[in-house]
Amino acid sequence: MTRPPRLSRRQKLILAAVGVVIVIAVALGVGLGLGLKHDDDDGGDEEPVPTFTSSPAPIPSAVWEPKANSSWQIILNAVLDIDPNNPSVEPDVEVYDIDMFIHQNTQVIPSLHKLGKKVICYFSAGSYEPYVPDASQFPKADIGKDLQGWPGEKWLDIRSTAIRNIMVARIQLASKMGCDAIDPDNLDGYQNENGKDLTANDSADFAVFLANEAHKLNLGVGLKNAGEIVKTVLPFMQFAVNEQCGQYKNCDLFSPFIAANKPVYHIEYPDGAPKTISATEKNSACSAPGAQGFSTVIKEMDLSGWVQYCDGRTEDTKVVS
């Protein structure tokens, strides 16, 4: 049997000092409640106490307020192919969520309006993308680490005045284009290795900032993912857009939107998408715990025109090739 090595006097002194520090730290934690859960804690994740850099503004009555269970389609990788002189589109749903920049010089939004559809305009608010028209405006100092799985895309310092000014210009573009609302993506940098030490409170503050700016122009705004800040920002959002809460088993975080009669536009990406989704995959996506009342669609990861709904219906929206 091998004996453990003997500790030198110096090592013993170091260990003793470390022990004293630990005892003091624990005593302070117990006495002051620093970072420790109380006995009455339910064990769930607590939302941050919000500290907003600007006060949330009243929501104008002209802002579009969709209702829970409204139907939708989302297409982000291509321009919708709609004849502006004789518009038609499938599926016949209430809401279309489309990429803002690639539809900038088209007649797609007025064509969808002619068909009685509402239009949500997507852009990434929390990340730098090298291929968008305003990419050169982003200060290098405000660009953080890579988004895992998205080559060239990087997290942004959403606290930066320069970044916020860029987003204000994007919101103004959305208004000019006739969008009914915005879908600002990547508000959940705090959940990732972002390189800018972002917190959940930073994301909540940024979400409210975006909401204030959108509401000034009578645009609705949605919370994209970031389930931990739902309760904090819910009063200022018109809807949520969620990806994969069924897969990650956290749909309950978004259920407050349904309780407030606001839609959760919910996407799942089963392995079988497109076209070869098993009944088990569909049921898992459509019957996820906590997702009751969600507006669920099944899509492939690139968010092309193909979609499947929970009633089994599939559609393939025509796009410009």
Rank of each mutant, 00 (worst) to 15 (best):
P289H: 08
V230H: 10
A214T: 12
V297P: 02
G246E: 03
I182L: 14
P4I: 15
G290K: 02
N186C: 07
R159A: 12
G116F: 05
V319N: 00
H113W: 04
V108I: 04
K231L: 12
H38Y: 00
I182Y: 10
I171R: 07
V30G: 12
V20S: 04
V49S: 11
N165F: 01
S255M: 01
Q148H: 13
D40N: 07
T276P: 01
E228Y: 15
L253E: 02
N77A: 03
S8V: 11
L147T: 07
G149E: 10
N261V: 11
H266C: 08
F52S: 08
P110G: 05
V132I: 15
N186D: 12
A279G: 12
N250Y: 11
V49K: 12
I24Y: 10
V319D: 01
T199N: 08
I22W: 09
L210S: 04
L76Y: 07
I166D: 02
E315M: 04
S54D: 11
I102P: 04
Q73E: 07
I277M: 02
N192P: 05
A207H: 10
I229Q: 04
L13K: 13
A291P: 03
N242H: 07
P130E: 14
L80H: 00
P50F: 09
L187N: 09
S255I: 08
T317Q: 01
N242Q: 10
T296N: 05
E228M: 13
